[in-house]
Amino acid sequence: MKRLIVLITLVSIGLVPWLWGSATLLGINLCIWGLLALSLNILYGYTGLLSLGQGVYFALGAYGAAWAVIYGNVNFWGALGAGVLCALGGAVIAGWVSVRASGFGFVVVTLVTALICYLMALSFDGITGGEDGMSFRAPALALPGLALSIQNLSVRYYLALGALLAGLGIVYLVSKSLLGLAFRAVRDDEIAAASLGYDIVQIKLYAFVLAGAMAGLAGTVWSLSKEFVRAGLFQPFGAFLSAQPDPDPLIAVLLGGPGRLFGPLVGTGMLLALREFFAGVWPQGYALALGVVILGCVCKLCSAR
């Protein structure tokens, strides 16, 4: 019976564009922002590193893909690879510096990185498009034997769904692996982990780079499916500057339960549902409700401990 329910759920998720067309755009958003939250979960949930600048790698992924298409005229897979590589490269550089700081130092360094990246993106608006952003034409998704236009809503949906499934797979595999154990060892007690012979800095760097690449994948899919990028993606807290902010990965992780495989996805789903609910009634109410939810979550989290 249980198996049947799971099967039906999976099939209906797969058939959303046909069964429930009006939810397709929402589904795409859920997949993309869920993937971003998933990446933050590697850092915060599994490794205990609180980053407030995860959006940077999302933005780098988005821009990597856009630049590859605009300047390199690459095909779809090239753009996808360029986006992830761009985010990965950024994460290696920023991570190398950041993971050496601990506690608040790490939070501050990730914030500084994000702010500097945002200012640079605004300043070099010749290549980033600044706050206006840049449109581009995404290449068709080429599979052996067929080329699917990204303008097609269902193609976009399956692309986002595929990326999310890949992300879930990676997180699952990592959490079951020795590396995942090392992440958790660092989270629970750095000193104890170090005394067992783990290289703390290196393990943190692995987590940082893995999370960065995954955020980059989310950003790449975002830019390829919107065929658009803008400098505001880099902005730390940018999500809170508008009345209906994008689902913030950190809040999604907190809501869904840090360190759980499907937690970030559930959190993102709750945020999106909350946003859709408020969008029609009272747009400003969303962020207010969000603040209350955070306080509620955090206070409950503490009393539970």
Binding site: L25, D132, R230, S242, A243, Q244, A279
Partner: peptide, 16 residues
């Protein structure tokens, strides 16, 4: 729905 003065949101709303 609200396009929020953001190109990507406005584009989605157009499609909707």
């Amino acid at each position: 729905d609200d396009c929020q003065t953001k190109p990507d949101v406005g584009k989605d709303e157009f499609e909707k």
